[in-house]
Nucleic acid binder design. Structure first.
Lengths: 142, 142
DNA sequence: CTTGACCTTCACACAGATGTGATGGTTGGA
DNA sequence: TCCAACCATCACATCTGTGTGAAGGTCAAG
């Protein structure tokens, strides 16, 4: 498939697909006319890239992680440099920290939303607009 | 405590603490001489901010999330605008996606590392250096 | 009083991810 | 044949989070 289709199927601007390639995250073939030609697996790959970027990982790190996610059932153990392994271990640790931070915050948001819903009496249900902001504290038995 | 101590205790450059304040994430008191004065809870708050920033959230979003994490046992239900609630729900969803993406990738890294360790025979244990990179595939029964 | 270690504000610089547009080649259908 | 819809490269701009440093105020200790 060409860049346009991949862009559409992944919801990614063409610009970004070229950028990821420039960063070495994507290596499409080229048609005789110079057009980029992507394989089917590129779709998941791009989705992975975007997810990791959105989770705060820089392309440089994603580039090192991607080989671990290659295709299912086949793990590419290439150039397993001591240094690469160390990097992966370090990044895995950082990812764990991120996960913990995100889970903590997400749960806190959930608690908050639940508390707000509890506090929202359907009393003033008549008006869908409540312009002035309420400002009070809720004691919660954690 | 003043900015220097907070910086040291959180491992954060002073520059960043001022920046977070500029973005409305931190609101320290001011001493009569103009120095910023932080309370004890600022330490955790800064750590939270940094963790979320590192997880890909922009300050604009963190600003909306922070009130949910305020102090333990007391949830501040302030200005619970319909719009704020909607935003929080949306961001919570995105955080969940990030978490899933990170977990998937982290697990893949773990599998990879395990496979590499398995492949690393202590056979050539004599030489601590193995300059040339091995390049092969491992079939793994997922 | 002076020195050094703090603090203030301000401003410019940078890197990374992304937006936008100019300029031009390829290709397939009206 | 010519137009529309793709594609290519290149260059510049933007936004965010950071780094760095200048110019100057505060304060405690020598």
């Amino acid at each position: 498939m060409r860049i346009g289709e991949l862009a559409e199927r992944t919801g990614t601007p063409r610009r970004m697909l070229r950028y990821y390639e420039e960063q070495g995250l994507l290596v499409p073939d080229r048609s005789p006319n110079g057009y980029r030609e992507y394989c089917e697996r590129s779709v998941d790959r791009v989705l992975q890239i975007r997810g990791l970027l959105d989770s705060g990982l820089p392309t440089r790190v994603i580039k090192q992680i991607l080989p671990c996610l290659k295709q299912p059932r086949s793990i590419h153990v290439a150039g397993a440099t001591l240094e690469t392994i160390t990097t992966l271990e370090r990044e895995r640790e950082r990812m764990t920290q991120r996960i913990e931070c995100l889970i903590r915050s997400r749960d806190a948001i959930s608690d908050y939303l639940e508390a707000v819903r509890g506090a929202r009496r359907p009393a003033g249900a008549g008006g869908p607009e409540r312009p002035a902001a309420a400002d009070y504290d809720l004691a919660v038995s954690a």
